[in-house]
Simulated scan of single mutants.
Amino acid sequence: MSAASASFLLHPEEKLQDSEDFNTLTAEFFEWFRILQEWASAWSGEPLRYFDDSHSSAIHIAVSDRYLIGSPARLRTIHVGARPLEVSQLRRALDHASQSDRVPLEHRMMLSARAAQLSNDFRRAVIDATTAAEVALGAWVNDHLRQRGQSRREIDRKIKNARGIIGLYRLCIRLGANPMVPEAPLMNELASVRNRAAHTGCTPTLADTKLACGHAEIIVSSLRPLPMT
């Protein structure tokens, strides 16, 4: 699929541009569209991009045979690259957006890390990537212990006592998980790079950033795979 278009059904009114339907659509369109963008980016592998306000209005209403009126909101566009969406994925992304169902946090953080890397903000990229990995580790522990019947309080205590990404990693290993990244690379090429970036203001190199983001991506995809539809 190379392109897609969508339309919105509004109740017909004499001055549609002043109607409640139109005003509601204008106010809520970009939150809806942002969720759609996130799912499209997560599934396609295309970095989540941000655009300026130089584009046309997102919504146009014909007020006569010769004139259109536009909403004040500006349109941002999905760009899908290496892995174009399947039609079923686009439909599912539209469903997610309509239900305000966002991409899980660990995957959103990876989207943020990829976008930061694309804009050469390597410091933010490794911080967001490490956060994504830590969230994925914690979420796996939470789900695993819940399935074993442990209480919310006990689960929270164990996650808190793990004290960060390395402790969560070791806890996951003890519980039988396979994060697919050995502990030494996790410590030296992800956690340590993140700590230097977060606590000393050190900017990682491009090579270090790619390595850190790659490790985080593997952990997130192995422990918290995103359904493809």
Rank of each mutant, 00 (worst) to 15 (best):
L186P: 04
R102A: 12
I165Q: 00
F8T: 11
T209H: 04
R152Y: 10
L68M: 01
L36Y: 03
E20Y: 10
A40D: 02
P179F: 07
S71D: 02
V80W: 07
M1T: 14
E183P: 06
V80I: 15
P182G: 06
L171P: 04
G70K: 00
I218Q: 14
L223A: 12
A113R: 00
Q37N: 12
Q37M: 11
L111H: 02
R114H: 04
S2D: 14
I166N: 11
L145I: 05
G81Y: 07
T229D: 15
K15A: 12
E134H: 00
L75N: 10
G176D: 07
G201E: 03
L171K: 06
P182D: 13
I159D: 01
F30V: 05
F51M: 10
R170W: 06
S88P: 04
A73W: 01
G45A: 04
R92H: 11
R102E: 14
R114L: 01
A42S: 03
H144W: 07
N195T: 10
M1E: 11
E20S: 14
R123V: 01
R49Y: 05
N161I: 05
M180W: 06
E134C: 02
P225D: 10
A139F: 07
Q117H: 02
P47E: 05
A97Y: 08
T24R: 14
A207Y: 07
F8I: 15
G164A: 07
A113P: 00
A113L: 02
R224L: 09
H11E: 14
R170Y: 05
S88R: 15
L168S: 08
C202R: 06
A3R: 15
Y169A: 08
Q89P: 10
D101W: 08
E38K: 04
A139C: 06
H107M: 06
A216I: 03
H55N: 12
G176E: 08
A62W: 03
P84W: 06
L137F: 02
E183Q: 15
S7D: 09
